[in-house]
């Protein structure tokens, strides 16, 4: 009951404070730009290299390159953008004092944390879908033989990766006292999950960082969706939920 009220407030806040333009706008921009960049790459390099200098010969770009570009952009810039926009979710409510009026009503702090996770996840899903549809459309126009199935699988791996980062940032925001501290904590977490796959086969297969490699492997058909990607994605989702539950427990014990 009160969860529905909280969730509606979050969605209206995203719409009314123009946050709806930030992540979806950035993702849409990458969705449109990535296929064009992939197509233009050889021409760009040719125009940049001086006449008589080193000749760079590249294989002609293919449809797959458009998605490689998209995944690269969103797994780096996209991730940072998610951290920066989600880090304030709870920390700012604590810092500014708006949380006090909410939790002094018959609302559990846990409910507050999970509605923040739900609304921000919805925003990430919307933005990623927007980016994918735009990239798919442009790739179909610019290149022959668009790998629809493979690119969709790759995008799903990307989406789960972004959702994990979002969940981790919500957890950080629940723990931290200020949004800067929350951002720092989430960035530290991001570095850890990026580095973990280096430490052996187990980590390379099962940690959320593995999803980055899986995006391109799914695209090229090197990895199987059911056998390789789904288990790793499931682990990432579970891990994200555990982090939010821990963050929520910490928030529950905090003084406001």
């Amino acid at each position: 009951m009160s969860r529905g009220v909280l969730f509606r407030k979050e969605i209206r806040e995203i719409l009314r404070t123009s946050r709806i333009y930030v992540i979806p706008g950035l993702f849409l921009f990458f969705g449109l730009l990535s296929p064009i960049t992939a197509k233009m790459m050889p021409q760009l390099l040719r125009s940049l290299s001086a006449p008589g200098g080193v000749q760079i010969t590249l294989p002609p770009p293919v449809a797959r390159d458009a998605f490689t570009q998209l995944f690269k952009n969103l797994a780096q810039t996209g991730v940072i953008a998610v951290i920066l926009t989600v880090m304030g979710a709870l920390a700012e409510e604590k810092n500014r004092g708006t949380a006090v009026l909410v939790v002094s009503k018959p609302v559990s702090r846990t409910a507050m944390v999970w509605t923040k996770l739900a609304s921000n996840s919805l925003l990430i899903i919307f933005a990623t879908a927007l980016a994918y549809v735009a990239a798919l459309y442009y790739t179909m126009i610019l290149f022959p033989g668009t790998p629809v199935r493979e690119s969709l699988f790759g995008t799903l791996a990307l989406l789960v990766y972004l959702l994990f980062v979002g969940a981790m940032t919500i957890a950080a925001s629940a723990v931290a006292r200020s949004q800067v501290a929350a951002g720092g904590l989430a960035l530290a977490g991001y570095f850890v999950i990026s580095l973990l796959p280096i430490f052996g086969r187990f980590f390379a297969k099962w940690t959320p960082g593995a999803l980055v490699g899986l995006q391109t492997d799914l695209l090229t058909g090197k990895a199987s969706m059911l056998k390789d990607a789904v288990p790793t994605m499931a682990v990432a989702v579970a891990l994200g939920l555990v982090l939010v539950a821990l963050g929520s427990a910490a928030f529950e014990r905090q003084e406001l």
Partner: peptide
């Protein structure tokens, strides 16, 4: 509370 804070929007 002593200094109530609301959502500005």
């Amino acid at each position: 509370p002593d200094v109530p804070a609301f959502y500005g929007w």
